[in-house]
Amino acid sequence: MSRKLAAYLLAAATAIAVVIPMSTSASAASCVAGWSSGTVYTGGQTASHNGRNWAAKWWTQGETPGSSDVWADRGACDGGGTTPPPGNTCNAPNWVAGQFYRAGAIVKYTDGRYYIAEHDNPGYDPVISTWYWNPHTCGGTNPPQPGGFVVSESQFNQMFPSRNPFYTYAGLTAALSSYPGFANTGSDTIKRQEAAAFLANAYHETGGLVHIVEQNQNNYPHYCDPGQPYGCPAGQAAYYGRGPIQLSWNFNYKAAGDALGLPLLTNPWLVQQDPAVAWRTALWYWNTQRGPGTMTPHDAMINSRGFGETIRSINGSIECNGGNPAQVQSRVTRYQQFTSILGVSPGGNLYC
């Protein structure tokens, strides 16, 4: 967060379950494609296991049919035939053993399912090398992850291929509990657009989740407002920018700490030491602060005001209304890339 933005401030989950009714027919049907522990199944998709057909009620991976209520028993099957494996149409090439693949590459495996490379690899088998590959659903309907977040870990890695290891996916998902309405309000499209908007702005603020702290150390002593009744107990130069939205100034650390139940005023270093805390401070700003704008970034997205309004709330005093069109374009371009990864349209009102 820029110092000029801070001056303006001073002045101013759950995925929906698809219920599949249990079969009432006693007759044996043909077995569908066999269940695979490494495959992602969404509500309504089927698999056979131990001589019975099963239907997934909601998103699942690695849960054996019959051992969890995520699967509905569709009755005995006789193995007389199979149906094509579940999944949407992808325009992806067939996987080739021994061919080099970059992270983010999508391939069609020999079983007809699709996989996305999480890491560069020299053609490892997607079913065997699960660290290098993740199951992938094409066509813009990637299932929400456990806990309700609409961005999978593989998509997160695709968005931030050069990120600092400090910015973990686990830290982000752990932080979601502080603001359960984030990326979990409205339609599935709105949820994905909000997640893309938040992550696109975080990308811009941190150079792709590379920088944990503000790089210009000459600014550090300027983020203490001694006029506040609580002063700057951690030291005058302690409240520099940190985290995905670069939280700065003593009054912002005080407000974020109070909201999150964390001692950030006296220990601002927590934001650069704990990934979940860093993400929580970014979500605090996103969901509760409007900056130089007229609404919070969260409200802008769930009320279909557009990505441009999130820019206005984060750094609109410097970038919007022609202030710095190149910076605005940088944010918009990243947002468009992230919505593409999540399989949704970016919507309108992209600029501010």
Rank of each mutant, 00 (worst) to 15 (best):
P144S: 14
P144E: 11
Q145R: 05
P146F: 08
V151I: 12
E153F: 05
S154C: 11
Q155T: 15
Q155A: 12
F156A: 03
F156L: 04
Q158S: 15
M159S: 05
M159R: 00
F160V: 10
P161G: 14
S162I: 13
R163E: 08
R163H: 12
N164G: 13
N164H: 11
N164W: 01
P165W: 03
F166N: 05
Y167E: 05
Y169F: 10
A170Q: 07
A170D: 08
A170L: 06
G171S: 08
G171Q: 01
L172T: 05
T173N: 02
A174F: 04
A174L: 03
A175Y: 02
P180M: 12
F182L: 05
A183K: 03
T189D: 15
I190A: 14
Q193D: 11
E194S: 08
E194F: 04
A197R: 00
F198Q: 02
L199W: 03
L199H: 02
N201Q: 08
H204E: 10
G208C: 07
G208W: 00
H211Y: 15
V213N: 09
Q215V: 15
N216V: 12
N218A: 15
N219A: 15
N219I: 10
Y220P: 07
Y220I: 08
H222A: 14
Y223D: 10
C224M: 11
Q228W: 11
G231V: 12
G231P: 11
G231M: 13
A234D: 08
A234K: 00
G235I: 02
Q236P: 13
A237G: 11
A238W: 01
Y239H: 12
Y240P: 06
Y240W: 12
G241N: 06
R242Q: 12
P244W: 01
Q246D: 09
Q246K: 02
S248L: 07
W249A: 01
F251T: 04
N252W: 01
N252T: 13
K254G: 07
K254R: 10
